[in-house]
Simulated assay, not measured.
Amino acid sequence: MKTVDFVTTLFDGAANPAKVTVAFNMARNAQKKGLATMIVLMVQGVELGLPGATEGIDVGQPFEPVKDMLAAFLADGGRIGICKSCMIYAGFTEDQIDPACEVITAPDIIDLLTTAKGSLQIT
C-alpha cells in the first residue's frame, strides 16, 4: 500500500452532511498544502463510495458541495479508501464501489495512519 502524508477517516455517511462536508473540506485543504492525502471511509461512511453518493450533499456557504470537492480532490491526485470489513458489514460488494475508490484492509489503514504526517478522525 502506498502511504500518504495526511489521512482523514470518516465514519458517517449522507445522514450527517455536516461531518461529511468537514471531512472532505479538510482533506481538500491538506491537499492544497501539498500533502498527499487519502480519505478513508469507514462504518456508515462506506456508502459514500457508491457511484453518485455525494450528489445533493451541500450544507451551504462557506463550503462547496461535497460532489465538487470530491471531483477536485480526485482530479488533484487525492485517494479514497474504503474499509473492506466495513463495506462487507454494510452489505456492499466491491463491484458496487466506485472505481475511483480503493478497497483497503484494516492492516492497510493502520499503516496509513502510523506513517502519515497527520490525520483527522471524524467519528
Rank of each mutant, 00 (worst) to 15 (best):
K2T: 10
K2G: 04
V7H: 12
T8V: 15
T9M: 01
L10Q: 00
D12I: 13
G13M: 06
A14M: 04
P17Y: 07
P17T: 12
A18G: 14
T21S: 08
A23F: 00
N25D: 10
N29P: 00
A30R: 00
Q31L: 09
K32Q: 01
K32N: 06
K33H: 08
K33M: 05
G34Y: 01
L35R: 06
L35Y: 07
I39N: 01
I39S: 05
L41E: 00
V43F: 10
V43L: 13
Q44S: 14
G45S: 03
G45I: 04
V46K: 02
V46M: 06
V46S: 04
L50E: 00
P51R: 12
P51C: 03
A53G: 08
E55K: 14
G56S: 05
G60W: 08
E64Q: 07
E64D: 08
E64W: 04
D68V: 12
L70W: 04
A71T: 12
A71D: 15
A71I: 13
A72M: 08
A72I: 09
F73G: 04
L74K: 05
G81V: 08
C83A: 03
C86H: 11
C86E: 12
G91L: 13
G91C: 12
F92L: 15
F92M: 10
T93M: 02
E94L: 02
E94D: 01
D95N: 06
D95R: 06
Q96G: 09
Q96M: 11
I97V: 02
I104V: 15
A106I: 13
A106W: 13
D108P: 10
I109C: 13
I110T: 13
A116C: 15
A116D: 08
K117Q: 15
K117E: 14
I122S: 04
